[in-house]
Design a protein around this nucleic acid. Structure first.
Lengths: 110, 110
DNA sequence: CAGTTATGTAACTCAATGGTTACTCTCTGG
DNA sequence: CCAGAGAGTAACCATTGAGTTACATAACTG
């Protein structure tokens, strides 16, 4: 299930990820980066956790967050695949193929 | 403005992009790929268009859709940057740095 | 020009999402 | 064991977003 995309849709969550890429942060430190309330950030962190983008470690009463290994794999992999097929198609973009496509398109007018 | 992420959040729209990576398609052909109603798909296509992910060309009464150049640039660029900072941090992950971070963390209990 | 095909827009509904406040749980320290 | 800090959960509200049906706009076709 591709929760990664959902998780990274929200700009706040992407900003969190940007910060965690630079250094580990406790939940409170993350919250301090934004105007939003703590519980709000806490939920963002949960979404990121459940999506496997970040992971948390309990240290005393704090929770230290860091990026999870492979956090962005799903997104990057998807981009690679799209780009791969796209590249192939562009390579094959000569008139013959193009004409064939048009012809096919004419036929199936439903 | 980062509409690209929003645009690619929706699974239907990602599927559309996957198909368009393989070949150009008219709006009708795209719609035929899904159970959803035409207007629904039409709006998905608009979102993708406005995000600059796809572009449309009018050919007679049809609208032929294709991926826009640089469709995924924003997303890929973001991933690269995150990964870049992350990589640097991991490189610097020796005990000294780690201890420094902990110390700093103790001090700023707000 | 009338009719049909191909798309897109408008108005509306319903579910999902983000944000807030209030409350709970857990760990630390006296 | 009690007080207080740090974090998370619950319940609630407002907004967004995706889906639908009905309607409007363009362009071919006779």
């Amino acid at each position: 299930m591709s929760r990664t995309w959902e998780a990274l849709t929200d700009p706040t969550r992407r900003t969190i990820v940007e910060h965690l890429a630079r250094e580990e942060l406790t939940a409170g430190e993350v919250a301090a980066l934004f105007d939003a309330s703590r519980p709000g950030i806490s939920r963002h962190l949960r979404v990121l956790r459940e999506a496997g983008v970040v992971e948390a470690e309990s240290v005393g009463q704090r929770r230290v967050y860091r990026l999870a290994p492979g956090a962005l794999d799903e997104v990057e992999q998807w981009c690679r695949e799209v780009r791969s097929f796209w590249g192939q198609r562009l390579d094959a973009l000569d008139t013959e193929i193009a004409r064939g496509t048009r012809a096919r398109r004419q036929g199936q007018g439903q």
